[in-house]
Design a protein around this nucleic acid. Structure first.
Length: 495
RNA sequence: GACCGCGUAGCUCAGCUGGUAGAGCAACUGACUUUUAAUCAGUAGGUCCGGGGUUCGAAUCCCCGCGCGGUCACCA
């Protein structure tokens, strides 16, 4: 090469690209007919003995991950695995050997030849023909350490996936998990639906929203924080006994190892079910997931071993708070007393918080982090559950539960509130709370109340955060590892 | 948002109390045709995140800024 391309990997590759073109070879051909992938090939010849040559012809394709002995040995990798290409000069024409010189690590190549196992035991394709299917212009990260720069791994996820098997595995498992959830909910009779992401009224969860603007309507919309109110409208419509939606929610809150501003939820509503049925559902689904993916019922997360085999513990929130603090909040009547009790425990509470908020706060601070093994925490205070139906045996509580695994809430469900008058009152309480300073209180949704006035059948509703579930099921410590393209600060110069 | 840490070659990383910028991989030239983190000889590659300051002299010390990570707070 006349031009000095030393030290400039890109220039060297550009030069080879030009060489290809000069020889009339397309660096980006349209099609290559491969006959087998790497893993099936490895499996098929698992019993081929060392040093044995076959006459079996195959065509394989993949990205060149390594080259040894002046291009005689190439490791190529496809989605299924790796296979070695053996490019011996006695098996290849001058033309083909010439092409070999234009191949770099990182290129996508296709090769045709015969199957053999080397004397040292590596299954290989003895290459007769090879061609570049996609010329790569940028160098891959260092082969031994791979790509470790955390920021670059998320910004350039494709590079992370090329280099790191673990990253591929996590995202594949995520896909598998979503698929199993979908099949399970369908098997219960659920119809999958898609409800709006642009909401004129924020509802369905306590959260800070993103606001956007529609030009033609000249109206602000909230990106949805939860699909709940729309899904229940569909149950009112008798659309199906059960509906579910798998989709993104958006919350304008902090980013952390457990929080991404957009995250994936599955919500499910089933007519004629209650929250007890939803607990059964949660257990059955999670147990199914772990069995199908790992074959057993025990998974490892960090230092913990988590056993998801049924049945799971079920305990009421007040009972658990009482066990932890020796205070039975069910015996405390007034908001002031409750706040005082919290302060005595060293828990910070705001003035707008009533009895229910205080109980939930204490639970969150003192009990939640300890809930490593799967457990359903039941019967939350009305005040923190404006969409849940009052408890059949205690008017201060609702029929709601949250499921905890590894100290994280992974599911939240209730017997749905279907009394329109009570729902209206609850909304008004939310409006009041908002005026008192609760910036996460929900808004009044009159049309939703109207829907209830037409009649929502008795109904169980259930939601689960997919991202955190995937974290637990893949032993991932950062939510970004389970999201293909996590939210990052935009890069300057790339806007 | 607060605190702590980090930012050096395409990648992974050294660089001590301030004294000429280093290695491995990748690239390039060559040797080698049964290697697999191939090996061997050689070449080239740097805005040491940016700006200011201290100093005879700054990758190194100080200040400001930017970016990233971790912990905490809000939250699922």
């Amino acid at each position: 090469m006349e031009e000095n391309t030393a030290g400039n990997p890109r220039a060297a590759k550009e030069q080879k690209l030009q060489m290809l073109k000069d020889k009339g070879l397309n660096p980006y051909p349209h099609k290559f007919n491969r006959t087998i992938e790497a893993k099936p090939l490895q499996d098929k010849y698992a019993n081929l003995e060392n040093g044995v040559e076959t006459e079996d012809r195959v065509a394989v394709a993949g990205r060149v991950m390594a080259m040894r002995n002046n291009g005689m040995f190439l490791d190529i990798s496809d989605a299924s695995g790796k296979i070695q290409l053996f490019c011996h000069k006695q098996s290849m024409s001058e033309d083909m050997l010439d092409r070999l010189k234009m191949i770099d690590i990182g290129d996508i190549v296709g090769a045709k030849g015969t199957v053999r196992r080397t004397p040292r035991g590596e299954l290989s394709v003895r290459v007769k023909e090879i061609e570049i299917l996609t010329k790569s212009l940028l160098p891959l990260p260092e082969k031994h350490h791979g790509l470790t720069d955390i920021e670059q791994r998320y910004r350039q996820r494709y590079l992370d996936l090329i280099m790191n098997d673990d990253s591929r595995d996590v995202l594949r498992k995520r896909s598998q998990i979503v698929s199993i959830i979908r099949k399970y909910l369908e098997s219960r009779g659920g119809f999958e639906v898609e409800t709006p992401s642009l909401h004129p009224i924020m509802g369905g969860a306590s959260a800070k929203p993103f606001v956007t603007h529609h030009n033609a309507l000249d109206t602000d919309f909230f990106l949805r924080v939860a699909p709940e109110l729309y899904l229940k409208r569909l149950v009112v419509g008798g659309f199906s006994n059960a509906v579910f939606e798998i989709g993104k929610n958006f919350r304008n809150e902090g980013i952390s190892v457990k929080h991404n501003p957009e995250f994936t939820m599955v919500e499910y509503y089933e007519a004629y079910a209650d929250y007890n049925d939803m607990m059964d559902l949660t257990e059955e689904l999670v147990e199914t997931l772990v069995k199908e993916i790992y074959g057993g019922t025990v998974i490892k997360y960090g230092d913990h071993e988590i056993d998801v085999s049924r049945p799971w513990a079920r305990k009421s929130m007040c009972e658990m708070v009482a066990e932890e603090t020796q205070i039975d909040f069910l015996e405390i009547e007034s908001d002031e007393e409750a706040r005082k009790a919290a302060k005595d425990l060293g828990i910070h509470v705001e003035e707008f918080m009533g009895w229910g908020h205080v109980v939930a706060e204490i639970f969150g601070e003192l009990v939640e982090p300890k809930l490593i093994q799967p457990i359903h925490v039941t019967d939350m205070p009305v005040e923190v559950s404006p969409l849940a139906k009052g408890h059949r045996s205690n008017p201060r509580l609702v029929e709601r539960f949250e499921t905890f695994i590894n100290g994280w809430e992974i599911a939240n469900a209730y017997t749905e509130l279907n009394d329109p008058k009570i729902q209206y009152e609850r909304f008004m309480e939310q409006v009041k709370a908002s005026e008192k300073g609760d910036d996460e209180a929900q808004m009044l949704d009159n049309d939703y109340v109207t829907a209830l006035e037409y009649g929502l059948p008795p109904c169980g509703g259930w939601g689960m955060g997919i991202d955190r579930l995937v974290m637990i099921l893949t032993n991932s410590s950062n939510i970004r590892d389970v999201i293909c393209f996590p939210t990052l600060r935009p890069q300057k110069g790339n806007l």
